[in-house]
Write a protein that binds this DNA or RNA. Structure first.
Length: 451
RNA sequence: GGAGGGGUGUCCGAGUGGUUGAUGGAGCUCGUCUCGAAAACGAGUGGGCCGAAAGCCUCGUGGGUUCGAAUCCCACCCCCUCCGCCA
């Protein structure tokens, strides 16, 4: 949610922002909102006056109740009319306000979709960063990326899709997953499951060294948490809604699609002391997504499934700290991919492709699948400034006693299922085996899977 | 699942219809005292809305009764205790 005072002062800037972010103008109906806002304030002023009179009468009522009663009834009726009218106006006012996006970073690239994202950097194992002159828009650097499985000892073979490779190795079973839970569910077994555990330990170790606080949060949350992080109302169809029959009547919970709402909600309605900031934390949790409307897309394998594990990085901080944390998260993302020796590029997301409404600025880290010759999103780094903190009511207190809204920054530390895809794809060998990345061998304790 | 108790400011804790946004204590801030600190004493100290001021809202949330609600009524949310069940 954005600050209504800033909005009132800059309606044309919001009109431009709605265009930049490609928000449906019927939902983010600025003109309607401005009219409602004016109406709302006028009504509130009237109500304040009536309330002030009521208060005066209440004082009179102590000495002369009959006189107070005579005048009071009319005032009460008037205040009720005003209250119900304000409630009606506020409901619509709020419903529109919910659809206004965060103010974008001045450098957020314009554009409609992923072809308009701007490449910040690209890295290839053994080569390092590509020169800036080779960067472009969208998937521009794909042409410079390896076109054969990069870690294959003999790259002269037709690479396998990760689903086939996983099945061949006996470590990914989508058929039994579908039998047990339906399509888009999978079992991961044995060495491939171990591979995931190894990635978890690699990253977790790094985060602990850097002082990140581990957090194990609830994964079933109330509506307010998802509304607070702005996953609602826009992404409501992407989560599972739980209506339990075996517990208390009327309980309504949602399975989180990311631990971000759970993690930030820990700080909901709290006022933190400034010296405690920034608070950096990470959670390794399952994530549940209904992916409604994506039928037919990426149906093979585990790229798009209803349940996957993810290490999430979150920070609650003071306003002047959020940009630095946004960069810090990127360095951790790059560190992991470089340790795993996976090629990738980082893109600055354009207005039309920059995730949820809370986004002030966002970048994606996309790993290159040298076998499949495509980029795949594995991490998203987002600075939401005070947008989420305002809805969640997360504040901090400065030394002079004043309270201000915090900023929140969040990043995918690692989408584990997709990282497995990247490893399988890039490390596959001619004989159908998969080389284990150096950094994971201490835990996997094998040089190859399937040999 | 059964039975009971309770939600008040940063915290503890009064208040059961009339200047109570709220007694008191702790904490915190400032001042006096002190070489300095502690102690003592004095003053201050929740959040939000509306350009400022005035004013209004806020005692878990929402409704209701009343001239007037923290206080009475209803619904919901949450917490605690005992029993049951369970990892």
């Amino acid at each position: 949610m954005i600050d209504v005072r800033t909005l009132r002062a800059n309606p044309e800037a919001m009109r431009a922002t709605i265009r930049l972010r490609r928000v449906d103008p019927r939902k983010a109906d600025l003109d309607r909102w401005l009219a409602l806002d004016e109406r709302r304030r006028a009504l509130q002023t009237q109500l304040d006056e009536v309330n002030a009179q009521k208060k005066q009468l209440a004082g009179l009522g102590r000495t002369d109740p009959d006189a107070a009663r005579a005048q009071g009834q009319a005032l009460r009726n008037r205040s009720r009319e005003l209250e119900s009218e304000i409630a009606r106006v506020t409901q619509e006012w709020q419903a529109i306000l919910d659809w206004f996006p965060n103010w974008p970073h001045p450098a957020m690239p314009p554009g409609e979709g992923d072809d308009d994202n701007v490449e910040e950097c690209a890295w290839i194992p053994g080569q390092g960063y590509l020169p800036a002159a080779r960067l472009g828009k969208g998937f521009h650097t794909a042409q410079h990326m390896p076109q054969r499985p990069i870690h294959a000892e003999d790259p002269d073979f037709a690479p396998l899709h990760h689903a086939d490779l996983g099945q061949h190795l006996g470590g990914i079973d989508t058929l039994q997953g579908a039998k047990v839970s339906g399509s888009r569910f999978a079992y991961m077994l044995g060495d491939i499951a171990l591979l995931q555990i190894a990635v978890e330990q690699l990253l977790t170790g790094r985060l602990l060294e850097s002082g990140y606080m581990p957090i194990i949060p609830p994964l079933l949350v109330r509506e307010r948490s998802l509304y607070g992080t702005s996953h609602f109302p826009e992404g409501r169809d992407q989560v599972y809604e739980i209506q339990p029959h075996n517990v208390e009547e009327g309980t309504e919970l949602f399975l989180v699609g990311s631990s971000e709402p759970s993690n930030f909600s820990y700080f909901m309605d709290r006022t933190l002391d400034e010296p405690a900031l920034p608070i950096r934390m990470f959670a390794n949790t399952p994530c549940f997504r209904s992916e409604a409307g994506s039928w037919g897309k990426d149906v093979k394998g585990i790229k798009r499934v209803h349940q996957f594990d993810k290490i999430e990085l979150n920070a609650v901080c003071a306003p002047e700290q959020s940009e630095a944390l946004y960069e810090e998260f990127r360095t951790i993302n790059e560190w992991l991919l470089q340790r795993l020796e996976l090629p990738y590029h980082v893109v600055d997301k354009c207005g039309g492709d920059a995730g949820y409404l809370a986004t002030h600025r966002q970048r994606d880290v996309e790993v290159w699948l040298s076998g499949s010759r495509e980029f795949m999103e594995v991490m998203t780094d987002t600075d939401t400034t005070d947008y989420q903190a305002r809805r969640l009511n997360i504040r901090y207190r400065t030394a002079d006693g004043a309270t201000h809204l915090c900023h929140t920054v969040n990043d995918t530390g690692c989408a584990l299922g997709r990282m497995l895809i990247a490893i399988l794809d890039n490390y596959q060998q001619k004989d159908g085996s998969v080389k284990v990345p150096e950094a994971l061998r201490p835990i996997v304790k094998k040089d190859y899977l399937g040999r």
